[in-house]
Structure formats: structure tokens, C-alpha cells
Deep mutational scan, measured.
Amino acid sequence: HNGKLCKLKGIAPLQLGKCNITGWLLGNPECDSLLPARSWSYIVETPNSENGACYPGDLIDYEELREQLSSVSSLERFEIFPKESSWPNHTFNGVTVSCSHRGKSSFYRNLLWLTKKGDSYPKLTNSYVNNKGKEVLVLWGVHHPSSSDEQQSLYSNGNAYVSVASSNYNRRFTPEIAARPKVRDQHGRMNYYWTLLEPGDTIIFEATGNLIAPWYAFALSRGFESGIITSNASMHECNTKCQTPQGAINSNLPFQNIHPVTIGECPKYVRSTKLRMVTGLRNIPSIQYRGLFGAIAGFIEGGWTGMIDGWYGYHHQNEQGSGYAADQKSTQNAINGITNKVNSVIEKMNTQFTAVGKEFNNLEKRMENLNKKVDDGFLDIWTYNAELLVLLENERTLDFHDLNVKNLYEKVKSQLKNNAKEIGNGCFEFYHKCDNECMESVRNGTYDYPKYSEESKLNREKIDGVKLESMGVYQILAIYSTVASSLVLLVSLGAISFWMCSNGSLQCRICI
């Protein structure tokens, strides 16, 4: 991952900044910058967002509201009850120091605090018919004063009620008058409520006091790749198909172990950190130390980045220098085999997901714990399936590479015959000098055995068991695999060879 928040398929997220979902939807004055928000790819909250409900109280069923919003990608904020005409018999300019803005008392931008007009609070009834052709999110509140005197001074009615009804919602609220500790300079409380109004449905408000009335509502448009994440990451000019709280993932790998919460087309989250597919040879310690064997393909974004291909070729060293050249036929066979294998694994496992966190309130801790156990169970199954699949494929890959290298080895052996000696570690020792032209003939299969047989015969008789390297004779190393990324691999195959001279070296080696 890149540690950044990015656009998702070209669409920017909605960053709530210092506000949370509650503050944004109710219209906390400190969240005025969010009022123009219309569309987004996903919503970003920060872990310690401080601006929620400015007048103390709870947004009821907040967790369910977050779940609903996680599939919303755009909205239209509109005046559901026009301020100047909807409440002619009531005062609608209630403000509070708890919702101060720029040093002055204020109130929510989407709600109206209705109080008595003169000395009376006549029963009010108002309704709205949803003609938007889509779901409408309606929010309101109920004020709970701290004393009967406060109730009387604001609403005149000691036994007030609030009723809200639609086809799918029907509740009646009565204020709970009680002494409470002071929070944000208030002994009173406000509880906030919401409902989704279906197209064509009607919502009716009736009250004799204590109503925090809707002013603006939201017509919602769903987008199934949307979601809500909690993150401290910063926004950058970048684009992605998959976003996590820790950063964007741009990967076609089937798995990731970065974060379980994802938005967009994302690899499946697994616990494993070692889900690797081999593309090189079986481990040979001396070669492995030099980083030549054991190439791997990573299938977990965050564990290993991208696929690494092994390729086969020849390396030689003689009086004229040293050089490398790919054996294109065996390399292409290996590439085709690995590509098919990788595609097979991805096809089997690479279903892209959006995974969002589930919200539970403080009273639902047991449910949250149960949900976590269920999620953990599914996660263990996914991890096991992934590891088992790759384990089985790896064994076949190792066998496949062994065969490829063996074929190259036999190709060289059949040409050199007794003009060189096998020394048991995949290397041959020449009994004759071999210049670049000679080396090329070994690589392309045109090695002239009779041409060098007499010199080889004489050297075999002279050496008589002495280690060949100390006599200045020449080696050919018969097994060799270097490691390159897919891009470098293609470039390498396009070149005939490249040279690395070893000044004054008397050794001649050709490596497979």
C-alpha cells in the first residue's frame, strides 16, 4: 500500500475532517465546509473527530445509520420544511452556546429548535410527501429539559409530546424532565432520530412541544462500492481501485494482509504473511546465498510486491572476458508455465471484495464479540484455502523447474562428451581453451567436438587428477538461474548478450 488516501476510480472521497457522521448530518456549525458535499467514492472519518452533536445527546440507531450510509455515493440536500413558512405559530430561531460559531450562539444547520411564540405553543402538524424518486433521509430531535421551569419557559406545556409517523415508522416521544450533570454547559439533553422515507411515502410530524424540527433532508443515491473508513492518512493526487484505512492498494494479487476493511475492488484479506509461490528452483544453499535460486511470486499485497520470474541462460568467462545470454527457448517455456500457473491461482482465488467494518453500540458488546468470532472463522478458512492451494502448486513448480534445468544440462553434456569433466555440482571442467566463438557454439548447439578432442585428450593426460582450476583450465557451469522482474525479464530476452569482463582471468566458464 502507499499510505495515502486516493480517488477511487477517479472519484474523490468525502473527508469529514474534524467532524464525524453525526456532526455532518445534523449540521454542526463547525462542519459548515461539508454542506456543499454532493457525491463521493467513500467517506473518511478520523479516529478522534471532535465535532459531532454540539448540544449533548445521542443519535439513536447511529450504527444502523452508518451502515445505511456505507452504500450511499451521492445525496441532494434540500429544504424539507421551509423555515419561514412551515411554522407560522412558533418561534424557530432557537440557539445555544453549546453550538457556538465564530463566538456567537448558533444551532444545527439542518434542524430548527421550535419554541413557544408569545406565551403559547399551539399543537403543530406538518407533513412531507417524498417526490424525489429515491429514498429521503429525514432527521429530527426531541429536547429533554433539566427542570419543569425550563419546560414551561420554552414550550408552555408541561405534558408535551412529539409524534412522527410514516408508512414504515411510527413513534411517540415524551420529554424526560430530570436533573443531569452539566455537559457542554447544558443540564438538558437532546436525542436525535432518523428514518428513511421511501419514494411516494408521507411523513407526518405532530407536537405540542420539545420538537427539534427537520429543516433540511437528504435524497440518497446508492453506490455499492462506497463505504466509510476511519483513517488518519492524508489525501493525495492519486487514483486506485482499492482503498484501505492504511493506504491505497493497486494490485491484481488475490490476497492482502494490510487491513480487513477495504473499499472498492480489493484482494481478499488473509492473516498469512508467507503466502508465496515459487518460480525458481529448489533451494541450493551456495546459490541461494548469491540470490540466484528460489525466486518467488508473492500473492499477498503487503507481504511480497508483485511476481518475480526466474529465467535460464548461459554465463561464460574466458580470456576475452565474461558474458550472459538467455536461453530463449527454455526461458519462454518457463515463463509460459509460470504465467499459466499464476493465472490459474488468481482465477481460482481472485474475487474482488469490498469489506466494511460493522458498528455496534456499547450495549451490543456481546453481539460485536460474536460477530468478530464469526469473521475470524471465515478469515481462517480463507487463509487455509489460500495456503493449501499455493503449497500444492509450489511442489509442481519445483518439479517443473528441475526438468527444465536438467534438459539444459543434458544438452551441454551431450555436446562436450569427454572434452570436459562433470564435477558433480552442476559444473563441467573443460580440457581445452574455449574462446567466445567456442562458447557461442555450446550455447547454440553447434559445438565442434572433433575440433577440440585432441587438445582435450592431451590435457587429460597431463592433469592426472590435479585440480583443474589450479592448472588454468576452464570450467563450464551447467545450471544457472538469475532473477529478474517481469519487465526486466522481457528486456533481457530482447538482448543477445551483455558482457562482464574479468581482467586477466584465465578461467573459461559457460553457465546455464
Results as ranks from 00 to 15, higher is better:
residue 232 N to K: 10
residue 233 A to L: 15
residue 233 A to D: 07
residue 234 S to Y: 01
residue 236 H to S: 14
residue 238 C to G: 07
residue 239 N to W: 09
residue 240 T to A: 15
residue 242 C to V: 09
residue 243 Q to K: 06
residue 244 T to F: 04
residue 244 T to L: 11
residue 244 T to S: 15
residue 244 T to H: 09
residue 245 P to Q: 10
residue 246 Q to Y: 14
residue 248 A to P: 04
residue 249 I to A: 10
residue 250 N to I: 08
residue 250 N to S: 06
residue 250 N to H: 08
residue 252 N to Y: 03
residue 253 L to F: 05
residue 254 P to Y: 03
residue 254 P to F: 04
residue 256 Q to L: 02
residue 260 P to K: 13
residue 260 P to C: 00
residue 261 V to N: 15
residue 261 V to A: 02
residue 263 I to L: 14
residue 264 G to S: 02
residue 264 G to I: 06
residue 265 E to G: 03
residue 267 P to H: 00
residue 271 R to T: 12
residue 274 K to G: 05
residue 274 K to L: 01
residue 276 R to P: 02
residue 276 R to K: 12
residue 278 V to T: 02
residue 279 T to E: 03
residue 279 T to C: 06
residue 280 G to E: 08
residue 280 G to N: 03
residue 281 L to M: 12
residue 286 S to W: 00
residue 287 I to N: 01
residue 287 I to T: 02
residue 287 I to S: 00
residue 288 Q to Y: 05
residue 289 Y to Q: 05
residue 290 R to W: 03
residue 290 R to N: 00
residue 291 G to L: 03
residue 293 F to G: 05
residue 293 F to E: 01
residue 294 G to A: 14
residue 294 G to R: 11
residue 294 G to D: 00
residue 295 A to N: 07
residue 295 A to I: 02
residue 295 A to W: 08
residue 296 I to C: 10
residue 297 A to N: 03
residue 297 A to E: 07
residue 298 G to A: 04
residue 299 F to S: 03
residue 300 I to T: 10
residue 301 E to T: 08
residue 302 G to Q: 07
residue 303 G to I: 01
residue 306 G to D: 08
residue 308 I to H: 13
residue 309 D to S: 09
residue 309 D to N: 13
residue 310 G to M: 11
residue 311 W to A: 03
residue 311 W to D: 04
residue 313 G to Q: 11
residue 314 Y to G: 03
residue 314 Y to V: 02
residue 314 Y to L: 05
residue 315 H to Y: 15
residue 315 H to I: 01
residue 317 Q to A: 08
residue 317 Q to M: 12
residue 319 E to Q: 04
residue 319 E to F: 06
residue 320 Q to V: 02
residue 320 Q to E: 12
residue 322 S to A: 13
residue 323 G to M: 13
residue 324 Y to M: 07
residue 324 Y to H: 04
residue 328 Q to D: 00
residue 328 Q to H: 15
residue 330 S to N: 09
residue 333 N to G: 10
residue 334 A to S: 07
residue 336 N to R: 13
residue 339 T to G: 06
residue 339 T to F: 02
residue 340 N to S: 07
residue 343 N to W: 01
residue 345 V to C: 12
residue 346 I to K: 02
residue 350 N to D: 05
residue 353 F to I: 11
residue 353 F to K: 02
residue 355 A to T: 14
residue 356 V to I: 11
residue 357 G to I: 08
residue 357 G to S: 15
residue 359 E to Q: 14
residue 360 F to S: 07
residue 362 N to K: 10
residue 362 N to Y: 12
residue 363 L to S: 02
residue 363 L to P: 03
residue 363 L to V: 11
residue 364 E to I: 08
residue 365 K to D: 04
residue 366 R to F: 09
residue 368 E to I: 05
residue 370 L to E: 09
residue 372 K to A: 07
residue 373 K to C: 04
residue 374 V to I: 14
residue 375 D to G: 03
residue 378 F to A: 03
residue 380 D to H: 08
residue 380 D to T: 08
residue 381 I to H: 03
residue 381 I to Y: 04
residue 381 I to E: 07
residue 381 I to M: 12
residue 384 Y to L: 09
residue 385 N to I: 07
residue 385 N to E: 10
residue 386 A to K: 03
residue 387 E to M: 09
residue 389 L to P: 05
residue 391 L to D: 07
residue 392 L to A: 09
residue 393 E to K: 08
residue 394 N to E: 07
residue 394 N to R: 01
residue 394 N to V: 03
residue 395 E to H: 11
residue 397 T to D: 14
residue 398 L to S: 10
residue 398 L to Y: 07
residue 402 D to W: 05
residue 405 V to A: 06
residue 405 V to H: 09
residue 406 K to Y: 04
residue 407 N to G: 06
residue 407 N to S: 15
residue 408 L to M: 04
residue 408 L to A: 04
residue 408 L to R: 07
residue 409 Y to S: 02
residue 409 Y to R: 11
residue 409 Y to F: 15
residue 411 K to H: 05
residue 411 K to I: 11
residue 412 V to H: 07
residue 413 K to M: 10
residue 413 K to Y: 10
residue 413 K to H: 10
residue 416 L to D: 07
residue 416 L to A: 02
residue 416 L to W: 11
residue 417 K to Y: 04
residue 418 N to E: 12
residue 418 N to Q: 14
residue 419 N to G: 08
residue 421 K to D: 07
residue 421 K to R: 12
residue 422 E to H: 04
residue 424 G to Q: 08
residue 424 G to L: 12
residue 425 N to L: 13
residue 425 N to P: 03
residue 425 N to Y: 15
residue 427 C to G: 09
residue 429 E to D: 15
residue 431 Y to K: 00
residue 434 C to V: 02
residue 437 E to Q: 04
residue 437 E to M: 10
residue 438 C to M: 15
residue 441 S to C: 03
residue 443 R to P: 05
residue 443 R to T: 05
residue 444 N to M: 15
residue 445 G to N: 10
residue 445 G to D: 10
residue 447 Y to P: 12
residue 447 Y to W: 15
residue 448 D to L: 06
residue 448 D to P: 04
residue 448 D to V: 10
residue 453 S to H: 15
residue 453 S to C: 03
residue 454 E to H: 08
residue 455 E to H: 02
residue 457 K to P: 01
residue 458 L to G: 14
residue 458 L to N: 10
residue 462 K to V: 13
residue 462 K to Y: 12
residue 462 K to M: 13
residue 463 I to L: 12
residue 464 D to K: 12
residue 465 G to V: 05
residue 466 V to P: 04
residue 467 K to H: 15
residue 468 L to K: 01
residue 469 E to P: 01
residue 470 S to N: 08
residue 472 G to M: 04
residue 473 V to I: 13
residue 474 Y to H: 14
residue 474 Y to T: 15
residue 475 Q to M: 09
residue 475 Q to G: 15
residue 478 A to R: 02
residue 478 A to N: 04
residue 480 Y to R: 03
residue 480 Y to M: 09
residue 482 T to N: 07
residue 483 V to D: 01
residue 483 V to T: 13
residue 483 V to W: 06
residue 484 A to K: 02
residue 485 S to P: 05
residue 485 S to F: 02
residue 486 S to Y: 08
residue 488 V to K: 00
residue 488 V to Y: 02
residue 488 V to W: 09
residue 489 L to F: 12
residue 489 L to I: 12
residue 491 V to P: 06
residue 492 S to E: 00
residue 493 L to C: 04
residue 494 G to E: 13
residue 495 A to V: 04
residue 495 A to C: 10
residue 497 S to E: 01
residue 497 S to F: 09
residue 498 F to I: 15
residue 501 C to E: 03
residue 501 C to I: 15
residue 502 S to N: 02
residue 502 S to E: 13
residue 503 N to V: 13
residue 505 S to L: 12
residue 505 S to D: 00
residue 506 L to N: 01
residue 507 Q to L: 00
residue 507 Q to Y: 01
residue 508 C to F: 15
residue 509 R to W: 02
residue 512 I to C: 09
residue 512 I to D: 06
